[in-house]
């Protein structure tokens, strides 16, 4: 395809040169024998062209999307769990704060004394379960927060360190959560 084109260009150049008499007659004869293809084209206005292009642009893929992430590689890496645990703890604080402020209007008792007596009346398993649901996210968020601050300073950035660090955080936070919930 390209070789053919190169030949055509050379022939055209020769044909355009009026001084080369021999070659020009030969080239013109050769050009007259070449195949030509009449392409069917259609004149469209600029706005029509724009609308066709816009229709194509609407079909472009969306990127990035949640589908592209490999769950097994990054889901337990700790970054999104930092957000899960943090929003859980902060959400709890916000809900408690709003409820505490609304308590006098609604007739609830959320003072520390009534909270402690109500919580103390629960069976040991329930108490420890609730404690674990607070202690594990707290431990995870604290340990992983320190890890993230270290990562922000450019430390532990090797691939193996990142992968291992993520699992150490899970182990340490689960052990700490169980200790805080059941043995403290």
């Amino acid at each position: 395809m390209i070789a053919q084109r190169t030949g055509t260009t050379a022939l055209r150049r020769v044909a355009a040169n009026p001084n080369a008499v021999f070659t020009s007659t030969f080239a013109k004869a050769a050009m007259s024998q070449m195949q030509t293809r009449q392409a069917t084209t259609q004149k469209i206005s600029a706005t029509e062209a724009r609308s066709i292009l816009d229709a194509q642009r609407l079909n472009r893929p969306v990127s990035p999307h949640l589908d592209i992430y490999d769950k097994q590689q990054t889901f337990f890496g700790g970054s999104i769990w930092q957000r899960f645990t943090g929003s859980g703890l902060s959400g709890g604080l916000y809900v408690f704060g709003a409820a505490y402020l609304a308590a006098p209007l609604l007739g609830w008792h959320l003072e520390s004394a009534s909270l402690v007596s109500a919580f103390g009346a629960l069976p040991f398993a329930v108490k420890s379960g609730v404690k674990f649901l607070v202690a594990w996210p707290f431990a995870f968020h604290a340990f992983n927060g320190v890890r993230h601050l270290a990562l922000d300073l450019g430390m532990f950035m090797k691939r193996q360190q990142i992968v291992k660090g993520g699992w150490y955080i899970w182990g340490a936070s689960l052990v700490s959560g169980l200790y805080l919930a059941f043995f403290l």
């Binding site: 916000y94 709003a98 402020l101 003072e111 520390s112």
Partner: peptide
């Protein structure tokens, strides 16, 4: 703002977060 107000109330009229 609501939670800030609530924490102020809790810290001044109750025993505080850590003690609770």
């Amino acid at each position: 703002v609501v939670v800030g107000l609530a924490l102020y109330e809790y810290e001044t009229s109750d025993v505080g977060i850590t003690e609770t």
